[in-house]
């Protein structure tokens, strides 16, 4: 029960910020895919950079554990490409579709129904996927600091600097 309330509160805070950042809209999502408006990239990458530093601090202080997903090239690459096609057609992603609907963009409802159908189809196809795509290129639970054999703060510093350079490029180009 406590977890459900944590989930609800976290969602309310996150949904509020998604709307304030104006990233829920079709025009913003398509804008990024067309390389014309990088608002959603700025939002996502800012969130990732801040989250990365904070969560690794928690891990170092032994206050949290990472939840590393398996690097599975078959699933990651093919799934990513399929996701991109669908995302470009819909113009909302799974999390933001709920927020887009809340903002009054009711075409997101078609997307939500479609996503439920997609999930149902995947559940049917899972046994086949498990024997095929999900066996290709399994690298296990790897991380960049792990395979490079260097301290994670070196990787974090490089990613933060690269992110800030990308931001300054966006601002220069008025994207």
């Amino acid at each position: 029960m406590k977890m459900l309330i944590y989930g609800l509160i976290t969602g309310i805070a996150f949904g509020f910020l998604l709307q304030k950042g104006r990233v829920l809209r079709y025009d913003k999502q398509l804008g990024a895919l067309l390389f014309k408006d990088m608002t959603i990239i700025k939002f996502m990458l800012s969130s990732v950079l801040v989250g990365m530093v904070g969560i690794y601090l928690l891990v170092d202080l032994e206050l949290a554990k990472l939840s590393i997903k398996t690097t599975l090239l078959g699933g990651n690459i093919i799934g990513g490409l399929i996701f991109g096609i669908g995302w470009g057609l819909l113009g909302y992603c799974p999390g933001t579709s709920a927020g887009a609907l809340a903002e009054g963009r009711w075409d997101a409802l078609w997307g939500i129904i479609g996503m439920l159908v997609g999930a149902a189809v995947y559940a049917e196809a899972f046994p086949l996927m498990k024997q095929t795509v999900l066996t290709w290129g399994d690298f296990g639970k790897i991380t960049l600091p792990g395979i490079l054999g260097i301290n994670h703060w070196v990787v974090i510093a490089i990613v933060v600097i690269a992110g800030l350079l990308l931001f300054s490029f966006f601002e220069k180009k008025n994207l």
Binding site: G7, L17, V23, S46, G95
Partner: peptide, 28 residues
């Protein structure tokens, strides 16, 4: 709000979530 500000604050939300509830953000 600026996407940098809103995005950065959402990063703090994700840190608090991992810290307090042990949950990483996801939807699908």
């Amino acid at each position: 709000w600026s996407p940098y500000l809103a995005g950065g604050l959402s990063g703090i939300v994700s840190i608090l979530s991992v810290w307090i509830a042990g949950h990483f953000l996801g939807a699908s």
